[in-house]
Design a protein around this nucleic acid. Structure first.
Lengths: 153, 153
DNA sequence: CTATGTGCAAATGCTTTGCATAGGA
DNA sequence: TCCTATGCAAAGCATTTGCACATAG
């Protein structure tokens, strides 16, 4: 999504297009996949627009999330993190979280298609969406761990 | 797990057995499946042991979690919630979260056994554990929603 | 007796809010 | 011009921490 499209979309919904909103959106877009937290986004925006206040960043992130342009995740590290929603993704979007280094990688797959049906049948619960977090070790840390173990013997 | 076993386990690991730890453990145990938050646990313990302080509850919950006797979940509602770990469960434990009424139901299944292998192959990420949250509508709310829709036509 | 555990209150850290001013449309 | 958006500082709120005292072993 371009800044122009953001402008249009904001106006469509009756919101105003401001520099602050533009910069917050740009920063999140340019850092796709990094899952920046609110403070990080604040710092990066401030580089381009020093007058901005934290409150505006928080308010803008909420707005963009409500508009469906970005999404928030909570990796239970004390921060709310944001990333852009890619046009083609619906709910096929999950995270691999490395227990060693904290690296976060995205998985773009609809993992649970058939499983949702079973849930529906067994639990009488209509599944609308799901969020999966896999905890484990990324390639780098796994190699390191195996190396360390070898050197012990 | 009984209080007696808790006593033993604490001592094994070099911790002391105290009334505070006993009551916190009992409250979580007796409210299995309710996913109480720290404040709720604090209130319930205080009914039995009025001298207890919040800090002790927080410290005890962390300790019990580290010992693997309880687990914490974050439903992104601002509270950390706790429930007991049943003996037979490893990582076969997920949640159905109703978008309408907020009800939380547990699912006791290892949903992703085969999927983990694919993740491993495709992403070079060794999965140790996973946590799945399904968002949707529970039986009651689903019925209500359908009723409301019918009455509109 | 000694080290760990506890209660209290203060501190922390992220996020939200109130309010006067700025600035889109 | 009018109403939404912003910046600032203060407030909120769950959780953590420092410290003197209590207590399990």
């Amino acid at each position: 999504m371009t800044v122009k499209e953001l402008n249009q979309l904001l106006k469509e919904k009756g919101y105003k297009f401001t520099s602050q909103r533009q910069y917050v959106f740009e920063v999140v877009t340019e850092n796709q996949g990094k899952h920046l937290n609110s403070q990080e986004i604040f710092e990066l925006v401030r580089n381009r627009f020093p007058e901005i206040g934290v409150a505006t960043v928080y308010r803008t992130l909420s707005l963009l999330e409500a508009m469906g342009l970005i999404y928030g995740v909570d990796f239970e590290d004390g921060f709310r993190r944001y990333d852009i929603v890619k046009d083609d993704e619906e709910h096929r979007h999950h995270h691999l979280i490395c227990l060693e280094c904290g690296a976060i990688k995205e998985v773009e797959e609809d993992l649970l298609g058939t499983i949702e049906e079973n849930i529906m049948k067994k639990n009488k619960f209509k599944v609308i969406n799901h969020r999966v977090k896999f905890y484990g070790y990324c390639e780098k840390c796994l190699a390191k761990i195996e190396r360390d173990q070898r050197s012990l013997t």
